[in-house]
Design a protein around this nucleic acid. Structure first.
Lengths: 162, 162
DNA sequence: AGCGTCGGTTCACCACGGAGAAACAAACCC
DNA sequence: GGGTTTGTTTCTCCGTGGTGAACCGACGCT
């Protein structure tokens, strides 16, 4: 999402909309004005006059924050799992499993539910799900995603931690 | 939590610790240095020389964000203990104990009460609770939480002190 | 102060079950 | 035909909960 530059305090009105819509914004604070106070991580400000590189740095940070919040993997129409401009192909079973995990990204999906998604008429073996999870893990690792186990509850898809 | 001022890029080493521990920090960027790039809302920077009121404004924002995001830990529907965008899974017994502590975050919870929560029909051994508290302590340490003992009263959950 | 008790911490060990992983075999698709 | 996908078995590993015992510091008593 693009960062909007706003003169402060001249364009205060405009600012209200931006805050409401969650648009990232950089306030250009005049030499005499006092700095705004907002805790919103999508809002920043800089004192004028300012160097170009400083403005650009703050804009870049806001952009990164904005797109970070939206960083959710998705499965496209071709069955590819896409995340942050990379992708991997999935096998049919993996697509169902990944689909369930992506739908509730960051939250736990029960083993039962996943098994029903992959095999609506009943899972072949109890172990089959484990094996496919293992394969899915290796498949999505290059995207920087990982499947974490929550014992006796299910699995959870998230951005890989270091 | 107090905001730490760090000269950039001279005190880069120090910065590593601060980032790791989630301490809010303001980087004082020398006249020639290029600004840092971090998306962490608990990190900000300002170009030197800077006006006092500008520094104060940025410090205030960081403080507000820190105390805002602090809030309280919570146990979600999946039984995960979440705190500051991190989480750990809990075993059933730990979930009961943590639940009692989270409910009264920052206040003492009696041993009796906790034992009843974990084992409604009576604790198995005298020190079963102790052992589970030990395990819970180690489990939640990565979240920056700690269980403090209040002798002959009970236990208290709080943000870990350094 | 000396001493015993109490409350709490930590460790080592066991048993059980859930999950991970490798290896093999069959089915499938280009 | 060759690679991919899927199912299955088997073995190993680890999370979990319980138990006993050693240890340690705070407290209270004489």
């Amino acid at each position: 999402m693009d960062v909007v530059l706003v003169r402060w305090p001249e364009e205060t009105l405009h600012l209200g909309e931006l805050r409401g819509s969650g648009t990232p914004r950089l306030l250009l604070v005049g030499p005499e004005a006092s700095p705004p106070d907002s805790v919103d991580p999508l809002e920043d400000w800089i004192r004028l006059p300012a160097e170009d590189r400083d403005v650009r740095a703050r804009v870049a940070t806001l952009e990164a924050r904005a797109s970070n919040g939206l960083a959710t993997p998705e499965i496209d129409d071709d069955g590819l799992l896409r995340f942050r401009d990379r992708w991997v192909s999935l096998s049919p079973v993996e697509r169902e499993l990944a689909g369930a995990l992506v739908e509730r990204f960051g939250a736990v999906v029960g083993r039962e539910l996943m098994a029903r998604k992959a095999w609506p008429s009943g899972a072949p073996t109890r172990n089959a799900l484990d094996v496919h999870i293992l394969r899915l893990r290796r498949r999505i690792a290059p995207l920087g995603l990982e499947v974490r186990t929550v014992r006796s509850r299910g699995y959870l898809l998230q951005v890989a931690t270091i």
